[in-house]
Amino acid sequence: MGSYAVFLRGINVGGINIKMADLREALKDCGFADAKTLLASGNVVLSSGLDAAAVKRECEKCLRAAFGYEAWVVVMDAGRIAGLVDACPYPGDNKSTHTYITLSSDTAVLDELEAAGAALEGHDQERLGPEALAWLAPAGGTLESPFSKISAKSKFKAATTTRNLRTLIKVRDAAAALAAS
């Protein structure tokens, strides 16, 4: 039985509103009995006998059926989330800068996003592995940052999602607690 982190893309923004209690219940109804949500932005930890690719397929199918929207998720092994947090070279948030990690279920899509970010003048980013890219944004200006605008393009939606480093630390800790139980 593996422990996984599931990251939903694009909920509670743009008209797709899902209460975390409803999300948790839908996942439980689809066979993920110990699904636990964190924060209100579509972060879930759960355990399953399926591999990560199968968890992704089942979660997307479940969300589409339960909530009627084109659901996309990125699923990662709990241990990998811990490794990404540890590998991030950037500090936790400070008064001027926030650290983000873009996660992807498709290496080629993340390669394209990384190349687009590398072309931006003054943009700090570092590839953490085939599925993750860490980057910095000015505090209070994340959504307006050039990289954020690129990563929001529709061609990246189905395969990527971005989380603040603080959020990934909370997900890492919750996934570790789930694995230990």
Rank of each mutant, 00 (worst) to 15 (best):
Y69D: 03
G68W: 06
S104H: 06
A21V: 14
D86F: 04
E70V: 06
D29F: 15
P91M: 13
I101G: 02
G92P: 10
T37Q: 13
S48E: 10
G49K: 14
A116D: 15
V75L: 09
G31W: 07
L103Y: 10
K61H: 07
C88V: 07
V74W: 02
S181T: 01
V55T: 04
L178D: 00
K28L: 09
L165H: 11
E70A: 09
A71H: 04
Y100C: 03
R57K: 15
V74D: 01
G68D: 06
A175E: 01
G42T: 06
I18W: 11
R80W: 10
L84Y: 12
V171Q: 01
R127E: 02
A118L: 12
S145P: 00
E114D: 11
T162D: 03
D93C: 10
S104L: 04
C59E: 07
S96T: 13
G15F: 11
G79K: 12
A108T: 10
A152W: 00
G83S: 12
L27I: 09
S148C: 12
S3F: 14
T160C: 07
L143S: 02
C62N: 06
R9T: 02
P91Q: 12
E58V: 13
G2W: 14
I169W: 01
I16N: 10
F147A: 06
S151M: 12
E60I: 09
P138K: 15
F67P: 14
G141N: 12
T162P: 03
T97D: 04
M1H: 15
N43L: 06
A108Q: 05
A78V: 08
K153T: 01
F32C: 04
S154Y: 08
E126K: 11
A152L: 00
E121T: 00
M1L: 13
D173Q: 10
D106M: 05
F32M: 05
S148H: 09
A177H: 00
D124S: 12
N164A: 03
M1V: 15
K19G: 15
A179N: 04
T107P: 01
K95P: 14
S148M: 02
K28A: 15
L39W: 04
E114G: 01
H98Y: 13
G122P: 11
S151N: 00
V85R: 11
I150P: 02
A132N: 09
A132V: 05
G49N: 15
A152F: 01
A87Y: 08
L46F: 12
I101Y: 06
L27A: 09
C59A: 15
G79E: 07
D106P: 05
D173R: 06
L133P: 04
T107R: 14
R57C: 03
R163D: 08
L63F: 14
L178W: 05
S145N: 03
R57I: 02
Y100L: 09
I101A: 01
C59D: 10
A115V: 00
V75K: 04
K95A: 13
T37C: 08
S148D: 05
A179K: 05
S104N: 08
M1E: 14
D29H: 14
V73T: 09
E131F: 09
G31Q: 14
G117N: 13
A158R: 08
L110F: 01
F67W: 06
I16V: 15
A71K: 05
S41C: 13
P89K: 11
S104F: 08
